[in-house]
Amino acid sequence: MAMNEGGTPGGAAFGDVPDEETLPCGRELAQVWEQAETGEPDPHTADCPHCAEALRALRTLEGVVARARADEPQERQWDTAALAGRVMDVVRLELRPGRTLALGEPDEDAWIVEAAAARTFRAAVDALPGVRAGSCRIETAVVNAASGASAPPAGRLPRGPARVRIEVQVGLSWNLQLVADEVRGRIVEAADGELGMRVAAVDVVVADLLDEDEEDREDQEDQEDQEDQEDQEDQEDQEDREDREAEEADEVEGGQR
């Protein structure tokens, strides 16, 4: 049959098969197989011995492929602990600690990296039922220039109370004003109790609502609109600042290379 003319499987060069192949009945082999794949019915194929032979070849292959898949270990059987360990060994040599933030009083020389502080805040927020923390950025709230504070060491933010911006996903059953207050409370509490960082302001951004409960939804959206407006001004301000920081961050990174 036509299929055996294309060279033996042990042939030298791989891919050693024609792009197109016409069966003796005039049908393109590629087309016959694709029709079989899509399940498109074709009266010709049902009766044609050449097409039947071509399909038998494909089914044989599919049978062995199915067998090969069945022989594979189940997903949960893959041992990924060692792999994850090796990945994390490399990752921990290439951490991105973020900015360096002040701890304690202005005259103390104690600091914490942003990534560590953010993780603490996220954990505190996650402890609220139906609330999950996403992005968490921390910076120094604007310090009064006249206060005579000495310039911070290079690459560190000025010593002064922090401003935290946190995005949260919130279950629909929460009142958004209430949840924003709760989130603020948790962060202020964690900042004092777990870190020892002075926090001047916490911007809470509800980034996402969890669940799709239509009845609750309308109610919540009203709340959300209010919240959005409140956050609006803050946010513009915020974005300006973030742009500036993005530039600074670029410079720092450039210096590392």
Partner: peptide
Amino acid sequence: AQVRVTVTGV
């Protein structure tokens, strides 16, 4: 001596 302490992780 000036002593600077930085927390890099928890």
